[in-house]
Computed example of a mutant assay.
Amino acid sequence: MLKVENLNVYYGSIHALKGVSLEVNEGEIVTLIGANGAGKSTLLKTLSGLLKPKDGSITYLNAPIAGKPAQSIVKAGVSHVPEGRRVFAEMSVEENIELGAFLRKDKDGIKSDHQKVYDIFPRLYERRKQSAGTLSGGEQQMLAMGRAIMAKPKLLLLDEPSMGLAPLMVKTIFEVVRDINKEGTTILLVEQNANMALSVAERAYVIETGKVILSGTVEELQKSEEIKKAYLGGH
């Protein structure tokens, strides 16, 4: 479904992604783990059209999308839940959710998906008239995910969904990640909480200083002493 080959991305003179290659197959949850500043968020921003690569290719559903405008990538079925939620603080919860369907024209589908978001996140329904800026971190994460679901993505890019959340909320968010995937959405997940990420994914890539240094099935990575030491709190 998604194929990234030899991707190089720069921030000015800083070489942020160095020849990154990876694949995500339809129906999978694939996770990208790595320390802060390793290039994980840069990769997602490049996939969703917020950054342009210097070279390399990104193929989504057999079509090249590298460097295309972000809105055309959303239209093709890729939604990005950015790090730090990025909800529209002054707007109500309901308005934020509706914005997710901005490019859609199917009124009935939008209505039923709106209801689906409330079914997945009942707390958002309770707070639907509140301005998004008054929500807790966990509720804002729910809202950012709900807004992305409204775009009806085939591929969902999730950037650090557990960041700054209480353990119970992290558990809830990851249960939702599983449910969204079961309903047919493919997910590329960037996550610092490696244990949690590996608990939901089928395959993983480890990225360090802009390079993929290791990839494999979750079972393979969980057995790796190097990964245990670096990311899983093992000795």
Rank of each mutant, 00 (worst) to 15 (best):
L221M: 05
T209D: 10
G233N: 13
N25K: 15
T217A: 05
V24C: 02
G56C: 09
R203D: 00
G100A: 04
R86S: 09
E202F: 03
A63Y: 02
T134I: 13
G49P: 03
A166R: 11
L2A: 04
V190N: 01
I227F: 00
Y118G: 04
G137M: 05
Q192V: 10
L188W: 00
I73Q: 04
K171Q: 15
G146I: 00
E94W: 14
S131I: 14
F102K: 06
E175D: 15
L198G: 05
K182W: 01
K116V: 02
L43V: 11
G84P: 14
F102E: 09
E175A: 13
H114D: 01
M169A: 14
L103T: 06
A38P: 15
T31D: 07
S215L: 01
K211N: 12
A101F: 03
L32R: 03
I65E: 01
D106K: 10
G233M: 10
T186F: 09
E139K: 07
G49N: 07
G19M: 05
D55Y: 08
L214A: 10
S13H: 14
A230L: 12
L135V: 13
Q130R: 13
K40C: 08
V87Y: 03
K171P: 11
I33L: 14
L168M: 14
L2P: 13
I33V: 14
D55W: 06
V30P: 01
M150T: 08
G37Y: 11
Q130E: 14
R104V: 04
L22H: 10
V24H: 00
S224P: 00
E175H: 13
T31L: 09
L143C: 10
A132E: 07
K107N: 11
G216K: 03
E5L: 08
N6W: 07
R128D: 02
K18S: 12
I187T: 00
Q141S: 09
S136I: 12
A70P: 04
S112F: 06
E5K: 14
G184Q: 07
F121Y: 06
E225I: 14
P153M: 08
G138W: 00
M142K: 03
V212D: 01
E208M: 10
K152T: 14
N96G: 05
I207G: 02
I180Q: 08
N25R: 15
L135P: 12
L188D: 07
G210V: 11
E5Y: 05
E208S: 11
Y231K: 06
L155R: 01
A166G: 11
G133I: 12
L135S: 09
H80C: 06
A70M: 03
E98G: 07
H15F: 06
A204Q: 02
K171N: 14
I29T: 05
Q222R: 15
M1E: 05
I97R: 02
K228V: 10
E139C: 07
A201S: 15
S162A: 12
G184F: 08
G77F: 04
L43T: 08
A35I: 11
K52T: 13
E202Y: 01
L51S: 07
L156S: 05
E83T: 13
N6P: 15
K68Q: 13
T172I: 12
